[in-house]
Simulated scan of single mutants.
Amino acid sequence: MQITIEVEGTTLTATLEDTETARDFAALLPLSLTLEDYASTEKISDLPRRLSTQGAPAGITPKVGYLAYYAPWGNLAIFHKDFRYSSGLVKLGMLDSGVELLRLPGQLKATISLSGR
């Protein structure tokens, strides 16, 4: 499933996984979020509700471009650097391009939608 992420006037695209958690995330769209820096590794934002983690692995080792859900906090994470294995992290999908935009410091306004909406 394709999504668009409009960040500061630039449109990025991403592909969601075919998982229960990713489908639950897609059901929230469209979303307007404020992405904030976290650990110089990712941009994060709270989601309006917790997502299902049914069938999800215990954790993942995120790579550059991963969109993920951090179940313990209930937030979206978009990684602009590789990171170590993290328990409670569930991969939602992958940016198709444009990860460098997420390396800009500070908060970024983003609107995430299903492609074609």
Rank of each mutant, 00 (worst) to 15 (best):
G59I: 06
A26D: 09
R50M: 10
Y66G: 07
D82S: 13
A68D: 12
E6G: 06
E6Y: 14
L28H: 11
R103N: 08
T61G: 06
L33V: 14
S45I: 11
N75K: 04
L76D: 00
A26T: 06
A58P: 15
D96V: 11
I60H: 08
I5T: 06
S87P: 13
A14D: 01
I112E: 02
L28N: 12
V64C: 08
K91L: 06
L47H: 15
V7Y: 00
L16T: 01
Y85R: 08
A77D: 04
Y70R: 01
L102V: 00
G9L: 04
F83D: 14
T10G: 12
R84H: 14
E36D: 08
L89Q: 06
A14S: 01
K43D: 00
F25N: 02
G74I: 03
M94S: 15
E17G: 08
M94N: 10
D37F: 05
S115K: 11
A39D: 14
G116I: 02
S97N: 13
L33W: 04
L35N: 00
G116D: 04
A56F: 12
D18F: 06
S45C: 15
L102M: 05
T10P: 13
T34S: 09
A68H: 07
D82K: 09
S97C: 05
S97V: 02
L114T: 07
D37G: 14
S115H: 13
I78S: 02
T61A: 12
G88N: 10
G88S: 07
L28E: 10
A27F: 14
E17M: 12
A39F: 03
K43A: 02
I5E: 08
S52T: 13
A77K: 04
T53W: 13
H80L: 00
W73N: 08
R103D: 02
L12R: 05
P105H: 03
I44K: 11
P72W: 09
L28R: 11
D24M: 04
P62N: 04
E42R: 00
A58H: 10
A110Y: 03
R50V: 09
A68L: 06
L31A: 09
M1N: 10
T15I: 07
V7L: 04
D24K: 05
G59Y: 06
I3A: 07
A110C: 03
L89G: 03
T15G: 12
E20M: 14
A68F: 12
E17W: 08
V99D: 14
L28S: 10
K43H: 03
A110M: 02
D18A: 09
L104Q: 15
Q54T: 15
K81A: 09
R23L: 06
V99K: 05
R49M: 11
L31E: 04
L108S: 03
A68V: 02
A68P: 03
S40I: 15
F25P: 00
T4R: 14
Y38R: 04
T111K: 15
F83S: 13
R23Y: 11
E42L: 00
L35K: 01
T34L: 13
T11K: 11
K43M: 02
L104V: 07
E8F: 04
S86W: 08
L108F: 05
T111S: 15
G65P: 12
D96Q: 10
K43G: 01
T11L: 07
S32K: 10
Y70C: 00
R84P: 04
V99Y: 13
E17A: 14
A110I: 01
I60S: 09
K91R: 15
A110P: 03
D24F: 03
Y69H: 07
T4F: 09
T111F: 13
D82V: 01
D82C: 05
